[in-house]
């Protein structure tokens, strides 16, 4: 139970899809002019992530991973099909989006009307494929956790687009320098929000020194080279994206 809660908050705040790894930025920037449409797209993203991440987890577990085929018989145990994961994941996502669209249209026309136009857009939203790829990279151990990861990272994305849409509605009445209007100021605000979200990094590990001693040392080394002073503020929670960004041996 505890790991579920931890993953939930971690995916929403610390590894936020938009602010920590920049996933789904295209639709985040394009559809955030009004709060109402932003809510529609955000809800659709939560929905599709909640469906595709567990599905791709099953694919990864029973088809793609090294040794995943051993349920077919011992002679298949050596196969490693993980190089196929991109194509299978994206095929699952594209198919699921189509299916979801058909099902929702049939059973809930009201929901379809509010999500309708966004569903096809979502097949090529990086947040969706990113959710599956991060699920694979982080080796999420169980189906329940994969579902949790899908839902919570969707909620994180939802929060981000809701916040920026609300800010953009307000900023329309502000006197922004002309060349920055529209896109430029949105980028900079997102950057500032991202810096704000970084402060959540300390949320889960406050005082828990024994949590990840190995990771801690590697981060300390990297950080030492790059930003000596800020060392104390960074904890192992930042590893996930620090590794992506600032591995510098």
């Amino acid at each position: 139970m505890l790991e579920h809660i931890e993953l939930f908050f971690k995916s929403i705040f610390i590894d936020n899809m938009v602010f920590a790894v920049f996933l789904g930025m295209c639709s985040y920037l394009a559809v955030s002019k009004k709060v109402a449409t932003a809510v529609g797209l955000g809800a659709a993203v939560i929905f599709v992530l909640a469906v595709t991440v567990p599905l791709n987890w099953l694919l990864d577990q029973y088809l793609l991973q090294e040794g995943a085929l051993s349920w077919l018989g011992p002679e298949y145990a050596d196969y490693n099909l993980s190089f196929l994961s991109f194509i299978l994941f994206i095929a699952t996502i594209a198919t699921m989006v189509q299916l979801v669209e058909i099902v929702v249209e049939r059973f809930s026309p009201a929901l379809y009307n509010s999500l309708g136009i966004f569903l096809p857009l979502i097949a090529v939203n990086c947040a969706i494929l990113g959710g599956s790829l991060f699920m694979q990279a982080r080796e999420i151990p169980s189906l329940g956790l994969a579902f949790n990861y899908g839902v919570s990272s969707g909620i994180g994305w939802f929060l981000a687009i809701l916040a920026i849409a609300a800010i953009r509605e307000k900023i329309r009445y502000s006197n922004v320098p002309a060349p920055l209007r529209g896109l430029g100021i949105t980028f900079i605000i997102t950057g500032l929000m991202g810096i704000g979200f970084q402060s959540f990094g300390g949320m889960l590990t406050g005082g828990d020194d024994s949590a990840a001693p190995v990771e801690e040392t590697t981060v300390e080394l990297k950080i030492k080279e790059e930003k000596k002073e800020e060392k104390e503020e960074i904890d192992e929670q930042s590893v996930t994206y620090n590794e992506v960004n600032l591995v510098q041996e």
Binding site: F19, V21, G184, I188, G191, M193, I195, E226
Partner: peptide
């Protein structure tokens, strides 16, 4: 080095270009 800085740098590029 932190991720949000990339957004701000792109914002500034847009500013200069426009």
């Amino acid at each position: 080095i932190i991720p949000p800085a990339a957004l701000i740098v792109v914002g500034i590029i847009i500013w200069v270009q426009r």
